[in-house]
Design a protein around this nucleic acid. Structure first.
Lengths: 390, 390
DNA sequence: ATAGTGTGGGAAAACGTTCTCCAAAAATCT
DNA sequence: AGATTTTTGGAGAACGTTTTCCCACACTAT
């Protein structure tokens, strides 16, 4: 080891014969190289206190020369802040989440924070364990997409006692923590409004039976809206889970009641419905309109393209991060905030009025024009442009 | 602050009136409560050295009582290991990645490690910055899905000098770092073999022009295989990018040469191809067969369902983590390993032989039976070929 | 002159672990 | 019995920062 005491020569980082960096440069070494104390170097580099111009220059020079990079772990230990946020989610493979993760990651990175990712496999037990692990790792805060409305609650509540915590996309119980989610009621209202406006009257619902907030709220909203809008009240309701398979079976149960529209609580479910309907020779949207919820990627290329409710993903992420920032800045107290963001209706072929429907065949599939969002709270809205193909 | 010096009463964690935990329990407090030294407590809890039975019991009891949780940051500082792995990827919204991320995350968590996620927006500059940030955060190792075969290289190489680094799914240059990827050549061979076997002869290729390893290797494999298998050598080749849009345009360029099959370098691209073909009234698979690559989610519900090459996602993740473990355990040297895992052909409707094709209409969409993978070398799925790119 | 008032800089104490020494006690060997 | 080795436990030094003191010096205002 010859390079150990090299006096700040222009060799920068010290390497062994294999090219691996052997010694990480520390504050001490920068101090020695620039002829001043560790404290001074820290002050110059962190800018926490003014320091003489000449000294500052020497320090910066030495740091540059040696290729100094502050050790974030040491910094974290001393300053009690890791600059790290835990992101807990049920299943990254759920096609709705990647875009949300992306937006969250970018928003946090823009603030100089990093994201510790924890995938829970849709299991609240695992979720609790992962949360505990993240806390041990001293995350500054947690962003949680709860796996289950009921069974996630305990763990979330306990965690919220330690660090700022924001529930994202799915809430669990009132007052457990800050929360940011899509306004499911508004979304469902948009759908039903659209269907009724385009002449549908026998509107059924395929949903999920779980205790997740999406399942519960969307069902409730359907029942409320349908009860108000439709002559015979709400139509047949079938509850299973959020899967494609369930979408298929739901069709068999719903079809006997001769619906002219099937509202699905979720895009995946809607795809299953679409598949089964085609299999049975039911014409969509001629005989039955189908709608989804979420606008997961590729829904514009289902056959027919799926009318659905687009969640304001970027705005959700931004708002969640904003809330976290608020808690992190001030004292972590004050009342819980619960933010709901209005989604946007995306009308595609699967709900086109029968009159406008083109004959099935070789020619281009008909696409209804996109209607503008009825209530899109902010213009920061969505980047995704399913720029309708025609 | 009354609760400060409470003598290990059964109140466990100390809370203020708001329910927030004020004081995190440290080793010192456990030591005091159990009447022994910090060192001893550490030894008991970490199990680094045998300790008297009675003392151990007292310590464990006190720790339990106080709800002690080791501070991973302090531990990391001292032991120079954070138990954290950086996962760098081009775009989490690329539908191929979520499942890979999931498998990686699970595999790492099973080893008690956590994942720091960095999404680069497909930008090598951003990628370099994110890698640097992760290194500052003292990750134990890096798992990198390179954004670009060429322009990612520098940053990757520099990073590999600091920590163990495994390139995942996309390689960049030989000998830069360990790498684990799908054997694109085998995959392409499976496709062409299948097409030729089912009677296709005028097989064209829609690919990407980039320098990413997937783009390059799949093209090369197509040309090699087609040159060998087909009477007139390989067919028309069109290169753009990996997008759906390019798939659509590629069709317009390829169609004049009257192909009976279009091999796509990627599922997204294949979907675009499918869309445009349908728009133009070309029958798939009657007139033209279409194949993809990757088997991203939902490709079974495209219309027609897409024949494609399924990457061995779980095995890729497992192997990558295994390689990391190897580097982390031993000294971080020895020759670079390059592992290629054989993919699996998934035959669906889009490449059904014309004869077997069911009439378009109401009945169930035809599904060809899945053929078994032609070459899955070992049951771990691993074709361990150090250094080889055939 | 003396007392105030900044200002630039260093020494050293944290932060919560792990780990290296040492010392005492206990067990084993001559 | 003494001479070893083996256990068991404590004191305290790391790890690389940030931050709190405190001192020395140069001014300015009495």
């Amino acid at each position: 080891m010859p390079a150990r005491w090299s006096p700040a020569g222009p060799g920068a980082a010290e390497t062994d014969e294999g090219g691996r960096i052997v010694t990480d440069v520390t504050l001490r070494e920068v101090a020695r190289a620039s002829g001043c104390s560790v404290a001074t170097v820290s002050r110059v580099l962190a800018g926490t206190r003014p320091v003489g111009a000449e000294t500052a220059r020497r320090v910066r020079e030495a740091a540059e020369e040696l290729g100094y990079r502050p050790n974030q772990v040491a910094r974290a230990l001393r300053s009690r802040s890791t600059g790290t946020i835990g992101l807990v989610l049920p299943q990254i493979t759920n096609p709705f989440f990647p875009s949300l993760v992306r937006e969250v990651e970018h928003a946090l990175h823009a603030e100089g924070r990093a994201v510790l990712l924890a995938d829970c496999d849709d299991d609240p037990e695992v979720e609790a364990a992962r949360i505990a692990d993240l806390l041990d790792r001293q995350v500054d805060a947690l962003l949680v997409i709860a796996a289950d409305g009921k069974r996630s609650r305990d763990a979330v509540e306990r965690a919220a006692a330690h660090v700022p915590l924001v529930l994202l996309d799915r809430v669990c119980g009132p007052g457990v923590a800050d929360s940011v989610a899509t306004d499911n009621a508004t979304g469902m209202a948009l759908v039903l409004d659209h269907l009724v406006t385009t002449g549908r009257r026998r509107i059924c619902f395929a949903g999920a039976a779980g205790t997740g907030s999406a399942a519960v709220e969307r069902l409730a909203a359907y029942e409320a809206e349908a009860g108000a809008l439709l002559p015979h009240g709400s139509g047949r309701v079938e509850l299973g889970d959020f899967s494609l398979e369930w979408g298929r079976t739901a069709v068999d149960r719903i079809l006997p009641s001769r619906p002219d529209a099937i509202v699905c609580a979720n895009d995946l479910l809607a795809i299953g419905v679409l598949q089964r309907l085609r299999q049975l020779g039911v014409d969509v949207p001629g005989d039955v309109a189908v709608t989804g919820f979420d606008d997961i990627p590729m829904m514009d290329l289902a056959d027919p393209a799926l009318t659905t409710v687009r969640q304001p993903v970027r705005a959700l992420a931004a708002e969640a991060v904003h809330l976290l920032g608020h808690r992190l800045a001030g004292r972590n107290d004050g009342p819980r905030r619960s933010v709901r963001l209005a989604p946007e209706l995306v009308v595609r072929a699967s709900s086109a009025p029968s009159a406008l429907r083109a004959p099935r065949g070789a020619s281009s599939a008909p696409r209804a024009p996109r209607v503008p969002s009825v209530s899109s709270a902010e213009d920061t809205g969505s980047t995704r442009t399913p720029e309708v193909e025609q």
